[in-house]
Amino acid sequence: MANIMIRKNAEGGLVFYLPKRDIEDNITSIEFDAPEKWGGELKLANGGVYYIDPIPAPARLPISLRAKRLDGVE
């Protein structure tokens, strides 16, 4: 588990940031993206796959969360 931050980029897309590993990349897909349930598996442009516990969609971004690495580059 690692601390990550999810923020919006200028184009409105989601950006994943993992400070400890200097990973900053666009999120290409998010498993749950509904007001009541948001999160789950995150796929990154670099091929990395992370998991965050689903939560109600945050009122605004950025948000700091804990994430687990499932697959892909480190």
């Binding site: 923020r7 605004r60 950025p62 700091s64």
Partner: peptide, 12 residues
């Protein structure tokens, strides 16, 4: 960048 990211999250 650390403090910038923090202010983005905490203070929008």
């Amino acid at each position: 960048n650390y403090i910038a990211r923090h202010m983005e999250e905490k203070y929008n």
